[in-house]
């Protein structure tokens, strides 16, 4: 790369500095700068300064934005098959199970679907932010799946998540993150559904009353690094390779960091008075089997490709 022809790229994330997504973005940017001897610089815009989540994806597709790191549920608004890891068949699945699927040919197929929207997933792929747990509640003990009946839970706005929670007997309410604390303190909701220990720790939600966790490891979510195809094609093949390689060198760190952070979060929550209930694996398996019966309807309603889903299921249960 010619130093006189400096390339400036913009990366937008909606999370604040210090969040694992931002840290990964900054490392990626550093690796790009190092590998290109400063010819390519990436400016990281945090906290939705530049684009809110779904806006960033559209901007990547049009070439208005160069790079981003997005959560799989947000991206599923453009490519519904990304919800595959949130489906009931992933209840109780391990981090390794998720990697086996997404790092293999089925993952490539999934990223290929994203590529059709003009958005490239670099080599190295995703890192996980889950597993999600079915319920974190305030002043209401949920220790078994039976206790979930009628519990009002704020869930991330995702049709798949809402459908699953309904099927479990809870009363899910897709709620924007900004409304959750207010609704909790005013008693409009009993708690949060299908989020992670980090959601509780990050918002210090014990101060808003959360004191119970039902840690059933139900469904997965990943962060996916993204590049605009239009922006990428303006670069030389060497520079394109630099950006791809820089991510391959970053992703291992991001995966370890995210996993450790999640493990620490539980301890912090417990120290702040959140009581954890871990259902036994047999109960989770029974729920998975019950939910898998409803999976076909969820897949159809969610606009997903049933054939692709069944191949993922075969690969998952084959392991």
């Amino acid at each position: 790369a010619d130093a006189a022809m400096a390339t400036e790229l913009r990366l937008s994330v909606e999370t604040p500095p210090g969040h694992v997504r931002n840290l990964a973005a900054e490392r990626w940017a550093e690796a790009i700068a190092t590998k290109s001897n400063g010819a390519i610089t990436v400016e990281v815009f945090p906290a939705a300064q530049l684009y809110k989540s779904a806006d960033a994806i559209r901007a990547l597709a049009s070439g208005a934005l160069d790079m981003s790191i997005q959560a799989s549920p947000t991206l599923s608004r453009f490519e519904p098959n990304l919800s595959v890891i949130t489906l009931p068949m992933f209840f109780g699945a391990t981090r390794d199970d998720v990697r086996t699927i997404l790092d293999g040919p089925l993952g490539d197929e999934l990223w290929g679907m994203v590529a059709k929207k003009g958005i490239v997933v670099p080599d190295g792929g995703h890192f996980e932010f889950a597993p999600n747990n079915s319920a974190y509640t305030a002043g209401k003990v949920v220790a078994t799946y039976g206790d979930l009946t009628g519990v009002k839970l704020a869930t991330p706005p995702s049709p798949v998540v809402v459908a699953i929670m309904k099927e479990m007997g809870a009363a899910p309410q897709a709620t924007p993150r900004s409304e959750i604390v207010l609704q909790l303190t005013q008693g409009q909701i009993d708690g949060l559904g299908s989020v992670t220990d980090l959601t509780i720790k990050g918002g210090k939600l014990w101060e808003a009353g959360i004191d119970n966790a039902f840690a059933d490891n139900a469904g997965w979510g990943v962060y996916i690094p993204l590049m605009s195809k239009a922006s990428l094609e303006k670069l030389s093949p060497e520079d394109q390779a630099i950006i791809q390689e820089a991510w391959s060198e970053t992703v291992g760190w991001a995966r370890d960091y995210a996993a450790n952070e999640l493990a620490d979060a539980r301890a912090v929550n417990e120290a702040n008075g959140v009581t954890y209930h871990d259902p036994d694996p047999a109960a989770i398996q029974a729920m998975r089997e019950r939910m898998t019966a409803a999976q076909d309807a969820i897949v159809a309603d969610g606009g997903m490709d049933a054939e692709f889903v069944s191949r993922v299921q075969a690969a998952l249960t084959g392991n």
């Binding site: 604040p16 906290a47 900004s178 604390v181 990050g202 210090k204």
Partner: peptide
């Protein structure tokens, strides 16, 4: 309170919104 701006600040700063 309630304040939409404080909620937003709480999300960015990871501060407790009730506080």
């Amino acid at each position: 309170p309630p304040s939409l701006s404080m909620i937003l600040y709480g999300l960015i700063a990871e501060e407790s919104v009730p506080r």
